[in-house]
Design a protein around this nucleic acid. Sequence first.
RNA 1: GCGCCCGUAGCUCAAUUGGAUAGAGCAGCGGACUUCUAAUCCGCAGGUUGCAGGUUCGAGUCCUGCCGGGCGCGCCA
Length: 545
Amino acid sequence: MSFEGRLAGAVRDAVKKVYDLELDTVHVERPNDPEHGDFATNVALANARVFRRNPREVAENLVGALDAPYVREAGVAGPGFVNFRLADEVLCAEIGALLEAGDRYGLKEPEGRPFMLEYVSANPTGPMHVGHGRQAAYGDSLARILEAAGRPVYREYYFNDGGNQIRILGESVAVQYAGIYEKGWPVADPGALYPGEYVREIAQALADERGEAYLGMPSEKALPEIQAFATRWCMDDIERTLARVRVRFDNFFNEKDLYESGEIEALISELEKSGHVYESDGALWLDSSKLGDDKDRVLRKQDGSYTYMAPDVAYHRNKHERGFATAVDVLGADHAGYPPRIRAGLLALGLPEDFYEVELVRLVKLVREGEQVKFSRRAGNVVTLDELLDEVGEDVARYFYVRSSHKSEINFDLELAVNQSDENPVFYVQYAHARISSIFERAGTAPEDVGNVPAGGLAAEERQLVLELLDFPRVVENAGARREAHPIPTYLETLAHRFHQFYTVHRVLVDDADLRARRLALCAATKAVLRTGLDLVGVAAPEKM
RNA sequence: GCGCCCGUAGCUCAAUUGGAUAGAGCAGCGGACUUCUAAUCCGCAGGUUGCAGGUUCGAGUCCUGCCGGGCGCGCCA
């Protein structure tokens, strides 16, 4: 159990003893200023109204009644904080426990019903761009963090391979394909075609594989096959890029399957039975305005085809039927209008309100030499994720993406990113790891071979390092509870800083056997936590740099 | 116009969800390598946390109103 937890319990006991009161929450935290001790609590202040006494007096009494042998010193400070300092021997023992857990330190065993995390789900109509990269990095890191925090996660990617945009992709490829043979291909709206270079690549791949086969065919027959080919090509391309950035999925779900399995028809008839749909102007509507949405939404258009809402609701219902406790979607902020209508659909079906949740990821603003670049697939000036990876590398990209809160917009200056990649904070963290590897290499032992931690006094830098290490489980747990990834990089940078400070002042490989063993233990512990933390954000922990 | 989100050092971002003197990294200036990796460390400078009120022992954090920015408000996806 964490020291925060243990101290909170001890304080609660003291309150009970002195004032005969049961407090439900006792907040214990690490003060910013190390002078204030290793841990502190504000109970006397926070509950001033309950105690009806001077907070300092309350704090004094609690210190007097405190029963916590691992605390070396407790005192009252400021307006009524209680500060605790732990015994060095206790901290050494704690490092021993950390080493025993090794790479599993701070991680809980997943238990309970899994919940589904859906992320990226970029349409298979072209390569992933830098915005998708952010969703991929956040989604994958979040999945890792949630699992580390003890919540089993099933990761899914939803391929929208059934909509209108696939037809446009097919036509775009068909035109280029015909062009290879210096032929034309009739299309209704040439302005709607996708302009990207990749369309040519797909066309070429199609020509290489099938030759002129589709030129002699009527387009009603050829187009579906070309669409299928192009969609498959894009999916493969996306999956390849995802693998490159170490973003993993348990399943890729195809929208098409919902049509083929009859789930959409089933959904519609069930909604009709629910009494939440009505016909108007020849279309079928959901009365979503009664279910939390701004207005009613069309499910089936006048022409008899479905809006995207129908398969999307069917898909989320499908998730529920597969037995997931919760479905969390990671979406781009430009899809902010989407959750209310999905939720409305699910409510109409009688699903529990808390089944469906959403995390919106802000967009990536692309900046070039100080000026914002407007990019869109239509304009054909998209910067692909692959291009970014080619320039800055996978580690830098992943780290940069999750370093700031997914809720705030980030500016991505490509030139600057390349220029600054040498000074990127990810190297700062990785360097600490590599330095430790180097020490063990010099010492001729491995981190796993570090045995008992000889108890002894700790220097200021060592104390700070130990306290930071022991904070890791709390950071993971909080990040998971809040569904945030960025606290991990923040933590890693602080930890790396503590280590670099320690390293600068103290030599590890000294003659004194106990001191050497204790410092090697600190290094092994730091190495384990750095590696675990880096893995949570999908970044490598190099042995050498 | 309505709804949701965001305004923190010159720049990019944190801040243990209400705690003590708001912190890092870049950029700037000045120091530290005969010793385990200087991709490091130490110091200096940089702020009315968009503005104005309010809540309380205490506010970057919560409430109200402004100002500025983003996104959403299709029988598009």
